[in-house]
Design a protein around this nucleic acid. Structure first.
Length: 263
DNA sequence: ATGGCTTGCACCGCAAGA
């Protein structure tokens, strides 16, 4: 088999890997991403469908949790080499929201950042604290001479251009100024927001809620992000969102979002 | 300005998502 000239790195909030497994497998077969970060497994470690994922041609590591959260990393034809599970900085944090591994020569931090609603309140405080911890850990990755990426559901609407109607989301945790500031502080370490880089002012969404046919009408948010360190950003070839997955029956409310990188 | 929908869990309603 001829070696592809590019490598496709994707992130997908599946919103329950139990119910969404057929959608996930169809997407994997159709788009053949090389590296995949999954969020919101909503399944215990025991319930993760490892056999089906393996049969689809992917090695996997996962960090599950009953009912909520849960993250995984898949490698097409390879086993991810795990370097970390759980974000450092709070030993009492029991939520499964971070897993990191070397996959196809890239160190990938896969994250499911807390939603933070309702705000203000303890959940919003947890979100801000989590972003501070992420920023500290990200600093150890951004300056590596090795390719590194931070990808996942960030639950951050970076700018008003990343939402169909900023006014309708004004009170939401995803759009608050301190959340945006924390996101841009993270980028300022030297990360490239790949979709923002390529799309510029053109609107692109990765999430559409279940109300008022927002998916069909393309009224969404851009909250799933792929951040590349400088070494990796030099190889950025293209980006995209597989919106067709969101329009399938019984779909997740997120669509797979990806970058293609020169090898 | 509000509510609109979907899922998991476990039990027919509630919490959580974004």
């Amino acid at each position: 088999m001829a070696r592809k000239k590019t490598l496709k790195l994707a992130t997908f909030n599946v919103n329950g890997i139990g119910t969404r497994l057929p959608n996930l497998l169809e997407w994997l077969a159709h788009e053949t991403p090389d590296i995949v970060a999954l969020q919101e497994l909503k399944a215990t470690d025991e319930a993760f469908p490892a056999a089906e994922i393996e049969a689809a041609g992917y090695g996997a590591i996962w960090h599950g949790q009953r009912a909520w959260n849960g993250v995984a990393l898949l490698g097409r034809g390879v086993e991810p080499v795990e370097s970390r599970r759980g974000l450092p900085g709070d030993l009492d944090d029991a939520q499964s929201r971070y897993i990191e591994a070397a996959v196809h020569g890239i160190i990938v931090g896969a994250l499911y950042l807390p939603n933070g609603n309702p705000q203000p309140g303890p959940k919003f405080d947890y979100k801000l604290a989590w972003m501070q911890r992420l920023q500290r850990h990200a600093k150890t990755l951004v300056d590596l001479e090795h390719p590194a990426a931070l990808v996942g559901d960030f639950n951050v609407i970076p700018t008003d251009n990343d939402v169909y109607d900023a006014k309708a989301w004004k009170k939401d945790a995803l759009i608050q100024p301190e959340v945006r500031q924390a996101y841009f502080d993270l980028l300022a370490q030297g990360w490239t927001d790949a979709l923002a880089e390529v799309f510029g002012d053109e609107q692109v969404f990765t999430f559409w809620d279940h109300f008022r046919q927002h998916a069909e009408r393309d009224r969404g948010l851009r909250i799933d992000h792929l951040l590349l360190n400088p070494v990796l950003a030099g190889g950025l070839e293209s980006v995209g969102v597989d919106r067709w997955v969101r329009l399938q029956p019984r779909a997740s409310d997120h669509a797979p979002t990806w970058v293609e990188l020169r090898r």
